[in-house]
């Protein structure tokens, strides 16, 4: 260890490892429906895509978790996005490719991808 800068660099790298354990109120929450219906419809690759994309883009304020059945099984995989201070957005019939777009458009740029939302289905 030769300098504070070296330590800071090390810390930045290490922080990513423990960041998950800091569940602050100010985070964007991405919740993937992972009940039997969701998993059968392909929720696992969707979840994986979210995690991978968020990691690739170093999104530190995003928390990705799962939940059970929301009750609209025919629209699974369902993903809900909670941005602090805004209304929740529900995406339906998700795929891994759609997940990548949600990350870039919605999570990073704040633009809801309206063509994937539940409103367009009903």
């Amino acid at each position: 260890m030769k300098s504070l800068a070296e330590l800071a660099a090390l810390r930045e790298k290490a922080k990513a490892e423990v960041n998950l354990r800091n569940n602050g109120e100010d985070k964007i929450r991405v919740v993937v429906g992972m009940a039997t219906c969701g998993i059968a419809a392909g929720a696992r690759p969707v979840l994986a895509a979210f995690v991978e994309e968020a990691d690739k883009r170093q999104l530190k304020n995003v928390m990705i978790t799962q939940t059970g059945c929301i009750g609209i099984c025919k629209l699974e995989p369902v993903v809900e996005v909670y941005v602090p201070g805004q209304e929740k957005v529900t995406y339906v019939k998700m795929t891994a490719e759609k997940a990548v777009k949600v990350v870039t458009d919605h999570l990073i740029n704040g633009q809801v991808v309206s063509e994937y939302t539940i409103g367009t289905e009903q």
């Binding site: 090390l10 490892e17 423990v18």
Partner: peptide, 15 residues
Amino acid sequence: IDEYIAVDGYEALGR
């Protein structure tokens, strides 16, 4: 040790 560093470990010593 990386996890300790992640929570500001050894920063005090450095300063």
